[in-house]
Nucleic acid binder design. Structure first.
Lengths: 265, 265
DNA sequence: CGGAACTTTGACACATATCAAAGTGTGTGG
DNA sequence: CCACACACTTTGATATGTGTCAAAGTTCCG
């Protein structure tokens, strides 16, 4: 009854395996830096944040596995045990929760360079499903190992905490806002949030492809798909954006910001 | 410009001060147990959860201060440094956040026996204001001391984590739901949530006083005060509840549950 | 008793949902 | 390569829930 989409494990690893070098060779570090360059985890990636030689040796314990997830497959499901974090190396995901009453809701989108699975840290199990919006690659970060390493490197611990709480605050704040926003405000916020996140990862802030369907945006924003479509059209008439199917061009980001902020009573 | 409502510190402490006894006297422990009896923190309160004698001695480091907060005064403000958790011993609070656009929103209510301030743990500063809905007493739990103690007692650490994540999940889930619920569903959920929480603390599940105004309920649920009022009236007509000003009597909790669950598509 | 704060109720407006149909793009099989 | 089916999007007409504005009612407190 459930189309059990299992993900396939890629043989490759992002770093040299343990048997190759017991000491960190300069080359290995360079390699890791390259790999992590476009990754939000670079703050966490040990060789990349000014650690001592001794700390780097500790960091050697961490080995990342690559995982390929096909469009529609799930990286994890709600209720499953939390074991790892996932860095999206390529592709994008949606997180979705099934509410008590059986309704499903999209709770977030994760794009290339972002980290997935933080929701499971506290409770020890995932609160939602994570499904790939397109064929994607992720870097599996076993949480046990991460914690072990972080325990011995306080600076890392702190980085980690900060990243986690920042994410929670962002999500929390967003959901809060939604309650009191009109459809136009929500859509404007959504577009600006995406724009900002693309820019932060080195992509264009003014032109990007939506990886998700109108219906998924609607679910995320607490609206109906027709409303998303109409709002996009209205924004286009107003010269704020240009919409071509999934391609969005932001023409007047200040205007979008004003849409978000107006009628603040 | 800001009516700087400072809270006054009560001289009393819930345990004997440090100079009175350097070793835990049996009486002191008994006293603490009594005090914590109706407190959600009892799971955290060391003498109350089956610790060894050695662990109890560690626990002696924690000293709780009582604080009286008058109606309308703030226990803490958004942006202020997070230093302590607060157990509501008596009274009730609302948490409110000021959104980017200047609008204010109630983000939660805390009643007698619940813990306040968890939102500050991750970021290190509070995300919202906490204002007393009535004259209230809280127990101040310095987080530093708590962490120190928890560090040496793994079981405590775990209890603590669990409590925190449970709260976050509850809040998160609630906010998620709100997005896709009608006014009636929201109000029904609100009433059932309150009922459950009162019951969990030993009060009646079917009859309780609302400590907050209609407007505050409305803000919390993302509605207008008139809608709250109308929905209460409608529920009363349907025989689900009886409303007398702030007093709510739940007549048919199953009916309320059905209101919450219906039209699940 | 009078006034302030809060609540209830009514009439109406407006935003968004719902229902319906046409339009567009995409992939598959002939 | 075309044609078809399918999934998704756009647009229109209408319905409905909730907000807005206004006024009366209630409780509380000086």
């Amino acid at each position: 009854m459930n189309n059990d989409n299992t993900v396939s494990i890629m043989p490759g690893r992002s770093r040299a395996p343990a048997d190759a070098a017991s000491l960190p060779a300069p080359g290995a570090i360079a390699h890791c830096r390259t790999v992590c360059a476009t990754c939000e985890l670079r703050e966490l990636c040990l060789p990349c944040c000014g650690l001592t030689r001794a700390e780097m040796e500790i960091a050697e314990r961490m080995v990342f596995t690559r995982l390929r997830v096909r469009r529609g497959d799930r990286l994890y499901r709600a209720g499953s045990r939390f074991t790892s974090l996932y860095a999206v190396r390529n592709g994008s995901f949606k997180s979705m929760a099934t509410l008590d009453n059986g309704r499903e809701q999209v709770t977030g989108f994760s794009m290339t360079g972002e980290v997935l699975g933080l929701d499971g840290i506290g409770p020890g199990q995932h609160a939602c499903d994570a499904a790939a919006l397109e064929d994607s690659d992720v870097c599996v970060i076993p949480f046990g190992g991460l914690q072990e390493v972080a325990h011995e490197i306080p600076a890392l611990q702190q980085h980690f905490r900060k990243m986690m709480s920042r994410e929670i605050v962002r999500q929390h704040g967003m959901m809060l806002q939604l309650g009191s926003m009109t459809a136009e405000e929500r859509v404007a916020m959504f577009l600006l949030d995406l724009s900002r996140r693309f820019a932060a990862r080195g992509y264009s802030a003014s032109e990007f492809n939506l990886r998700m369907k109108r219906e998924e945006i609607a679910s995320y924003l607490g609206l109906k798909l027709e409303t998303i479509s109409r709002t996009f059209s209205r924004f286009q008439e107003q010269g704020l954006i240009v919409v071509q199917q999934k391609l969005i061009r932001i023409r007047n980001s200040l205007g979008l910001l004003q849409v978000m902020g107006r009628e603040a009573d």
